[in-house]
């Protein structure tokens, strides 16, 4: 990787302007929609900026951050977000991989299945959340009707602080896994068939083929997929907003939801910015750690 760069260095300098022109739109957008807002957020987090009273904004130093340390709901939302990430990432990766293995066959009509598993991804999260609220409903809800026919329930899934987050984990994994399934699928189809043939000749069982050919072959894809899921999982907001409003008893309050509520519902942009900054640091730290771990495992 590094040696390749050195060789190309000379050539690049001649093509510098073309190259720059090509990346300019992306960089501009990045500056406009990422770096500037990020800079503004840092600035705002040290003020008492109220969205309705921009004229009265004052510098308040670390006041917002000191307030954050006393904010029990924000602390709870950090814990909840981590619980969600820890539960949803393995579940979603496994689901996606499982589905990819299932649909990676040359059967008649397999594309119908691929489409069916992929479909939830294209649905709006709002729609999916409302749909699942019906499914979880204790009165005549689909899930409780099923359990009822087995003589169980009814359970108030979303109205129980112990199960509410779990419900959101399940529906999120269901909604998201179709997309990652497609990525896994393309990875599966990239694994050369002769490896399997050779394994079969050597007498490897299907399970051995899976662990010694399929999994190593998907390593890079798995890293990409899990990174992807982690980052999007941290941004959980729509499902609790639609289904539980962060309740019951703050059991499903997440960081981004709390930031949204503080900034746009209570108009406290300054305080909300401080929350956002803390959130950024958390996600950045985790991504860096993840990067370290995965780059190490790639070198092995």
């Amino acid at each position: 990787m590094n040696t390749g760069n050195a060789v190309k260095q000379k050539k690049l300098s001649r093509e510098n302007w073309t190259g720059l022109a090509f990346i300019a739109p992306a960089v501009l957008l990045l500056i406009l929609f990422l770096l500037i807002p990020f800079g503004l957020t840092i600035g705002n987090s040290f003020t008492n900026y109220n969205i309705l009273k921009p004229g009265e904004t004052q510098f308040v130093g670390l006041k917002n951050f000191i307030k954050l340390t006393r904010d029990t709901v924000f602390m709870k939302s950090i814990v909840n977000t981590f619980v969600f990430v820890i539960l949803v990432v393995p579940l979603q990766v496994c689901l996606a991989l499982g589905l990819a293995l299932l649909v990676n066959r040359k059967l008649k009509g397999i594309s119908v299945y691929r489409l069916a598993f992929f479909a939830p991804t294209v649905l709006s999260l709002v729609v999916v959340s409302i749909l699942w609220s019906y499914i979880y409903n204790p009165n005549n809800g689909l899930l409780n009707s099923l359990l009822g026919s087995l003589g169980l329930g009814p359970f108030k899934f979303l109205n129980n602080p112990r199960t509410a987050m779990l419900c959101i984990v399940v529906l999120s994994a269901w909604q998201g896994c179709g997309f990652q399934m497609m990525i896994f699928l393309s990875g599966l189809q990239d694994i050369p068939a002769y490896l399997y043939e050779a394994a079969r000749v050597d007498g490897a069982t299907r399970l051995q083929q899976f662990f010694h050919i399929t999994l190593p072959g998907l390593n890079n894809i798995a890293v990409f997929v899990s990174l992807n899921i982690v980052v999007s999982a941290f941004q959980l907001i729509i499902q609790p907003m639609m289904m539980t409003a962060g309740g019951p008893q703050n059991a499903t309050m997440t960081i981004v939801y709390e930031i949204y509520q503080t900034g746009f519902k209570y108009n406290q942009m300054g305080y909300g910015s401080a929350m956002a900054l803390v959130f950024t640091v958390i996600v950045l730290t985790i991504t860096l750690i993840q990067n370290k771990i995965t780059s190490k495992s790639n070198e092995d």
Binding site: P161, A245, G246, G247, P248, Q249, K265, Y266
Partner: peptide, 19 residues
């Protein structure tokens, strides 16, 4: 008002879920 109203709704929800 927005804060008070939101807290009221939360309280109703909390009471209905066992608090």
């Amino acid at each position: 008002y927005a804060v008070a109203s939101n807290q009221f709704a939360t309280a109703v929800q909390n009471v209905l879920t066992g608090m």
